[in-house]
């Protein structure tokens, strides 16, 4: 019984961390804080099926979407899951993206799916929150 309670609390704690991380990314986008997003991003970084290997290009991506007026309104956590061997297919079913997940994404990273109030569009993040360091490995969407 105690083990079940402990498991439930862990799951609940994880959910609130995931929710908090999703809100953080959405807030930074909405506030136009491209520099902070770039600083949180790993290099190489994944955008949809594209591996971005240059730091200035990762920064350009964030500043570009902010400059375009992109906002994540009404962000909510729809799904969160640890990485699975086939997680890469959610970004692109290619040799490159498969290798990216295997080589560059920390094992403890999670896939966080955000729902937005913008015509039900969603965003997918590869996010790691460990050792007091939040890292975004990838961004897909809105889709």
């Amino acid at each position: 019984m105690a083990a079940l309670i402990l498991l439930a609390s862990c799951a609940s704690l994880q959910h609130s961390w995931d929710q908090g991380n999703v809100q953080t990314v959405a807030r930074l986008i909405n506030e136009g804080q491209a520099d902070k997003l770039a600083a949180m991003s790993a290099v190489p970084f994944l955008v949809d099926g594209e591996i971005v290997t240059l730091k200035p290009d990762v920064a350009s991506f964030w500043s570009g979407i902010v400059k375009a007026g992109f906002k994540v309104e009404g962000a909510t956590l729809v799904q969160a899951a640890p990485l699975a061997p086939d997680s890469y297919t959610q970004f692109a079913n290619t040799m490159e993206v498969k290798t990216f997940f295997a080589q560059y994404v920390k094992k403890e990273a999670r896939l966080l799916e955000l729902g937005t109030s913008q015509s039900g569009k969603r965003i997918l993040l590869i996010f790691s929150d460990s050792s007091f360091k939040k890292t975004i490995y990838g961004f897909k969407g809105p889709y």
Binding site: V47, I51, V52, T53, D57, S60, G64, K67, A68, P142
Partner: peptide, 20 residues
């Protein structure tokens, strides 16, 4: 593919993200 096509994709993605 990485430094010409991929970077073109990235630039256009930023530009059209609010107008898909």
């Amino acid at each position: 593919r990485r430094f010409v096509a991929g970077r073109l994709y990235l630039s256009l993605k930023s530009r059209f993200i609010t107008n898909p």
